[in-house]
Design a protein around this nucleic acid. Sequence first.
DNA 1: CATACGTGGGC
DNA 2: TGCCCAAGTAT
Length: 382
Amino acid sequence: MLDTRFFSDEMRKQLLEWWQIHGRHDLPWKRGDVISLGASDLQGNTFELDPYPIWVAEVMLQQTQLNVMLPYWKRWMLELPTRADLIFACLDKILFLWKGLGYYSRARRLHQAAIQLGDEPWPRTLDAWMSLPGIGRTTAGSILSSAFNLPFPILDGNVTRVLARLQAFSMPPIKAKTLFWSWSEALLDREQPRDFNQALMDLGALICIPGKPQCFLCPWQEHCSAYSYGCQSKLPVKGKARESPYKVIGVGIVLNELGEVLIDQRHNEGLLGGLWEFPGGKQDPGETIQATISRELKEELDIEVEVGEELIVLNHSYSHMKLCFVVRLCRMIAGRPKPLASQQIRWVQPEDLDQYAFPAANAKIISALLEYFQDKNSIPIL
DNA sequence: CATACGTGGGC
DNA sequence: TGCCCAAGTAT
């Protein structure tokens, strides 16, 4: 039941004319090699682009803004320029290239998907792309329309916001995914889906922004229900966010007599999967932080430590919880560390920590540790 | 369908 | 400082 009343050819034309002038035309994955020409020529927009750089970009762009992912994408393309390079890369390298971007399962799934594709030709159907790990309908539609100029709609945060305002939709869009998809599909310019999808996203990213949209610059002002009601800054309606839990985490910087520090690699599944970290864990109610650290290191590494001075305390918010890391220097008293709760453990020189993929919060701990050693001008003998 | 899953920028 | 938000996917 496709309601296309609101979506005219005139609207498509207005958006594309706006985009020709104001759109983001400098996306490097859309300026790369043209892998084949269609019946027409470049002017006709029927050329095809290499899907690999587009695929990498689209995955990096999931829940991530263009200016944030761009340097990561450039480095990735230098290190792993083709699908074959990705297939044969090791997970450590992949996670290192992803370090700091967040949502690390994206990197693992990109790798898995490349392996799954093997040396098959690039898929050209929605189902084939969506069957790959890490690729949902939006990413599949983006790749198919960007690379092959095929008429598949998208529904990202930008498009959702534009549509919610265009239709003055008064419920949280999350409750009406199917309707929004049908709108995106009805709206799509089937003659030039590549440019149209990009134009729609650019409209959302540049004009129809959250908060205070730039309606005075909008090519669709006259078509926008929210604008006519003056409610554009209230849309889209968001669902109520649940309070995220707060936890205190005791972290142990365990040093040995060689001045090496003990790190562990997290299991691949779940939060920060596959990344390295300093050992530690959640403080139990009524427990001192010293007790937390010595208990966690006993449970996870089977070592006894003496908990020493505080290195740093830092707060860190994830999307679904807030943590306070209390980091203490530790001396190992007894035992030999074993990876009881991790993939592996390693003793490393502090200068070599930059060769491992640590999450952002741990990167701050590393900075504090290196500063500490610099101030001491020597490795502390505990 | 609700929830897990990161991070940095903007205000 | 703290909260909102950003090119979503998997379960």
